[in-house]
């Protein structure tokens, strides 16, 4: 049984964003817990991933950047191939 959430998650996401904008949040403010899980799940669904925890850990460790780079490399590779 999940407990009743009294404050919409968008509110917390807005606050997190406002704090990031306002300055530094030590420890890179990626939300954790329920808010963070849902945010992560949303992104995973978009990318067709199934399990959140693994990906979350990976992204924290910088896998996201690696992926981006990988993607770019791939594109570059293709371009090179075409040329």
């Amino acid at each position: 049984m999940g407990r009743k959430t009294l404050i919409p998650e968008e509110k917390w996401e807005g606050l997190r964003h406002a704090m990031e904008e306002a300055g530094r949040v030590k420890g890179a403010a990626r939300p954790t817990g329920e808010v963070g899980r849902k945010a992560a799940e949303g992104k995973k669904e978009g990318k067709g991933k199934k399990k959140g925890e693994k990906k979350k850990k990976g992204r924290k460790g910088g896998k996201g950047k690696g992926k981006k780079n990988g993607g770019k490399k791939g594109k570059k590779g293709k371009k090179k191939g075409k040329k």
Partner: peptide, 30 residues
């Protein structure tokens, strides 16, 4: 921002508990 200080906290209400918990999750050491 030196810090955000949860005030008028009433442990008996789930709203107080949820706000405090989510504040810490969202804004961490602030």
């Amino acid at each position: 921002i030196l810090g955000i200080l949860p005030c008028m906290y009433d442990v008996r209400t789930s709203l107080s508990r949820q706000v405090e918990e989510h504040l810490r999750e969202t804004l961490r050491d602030k």
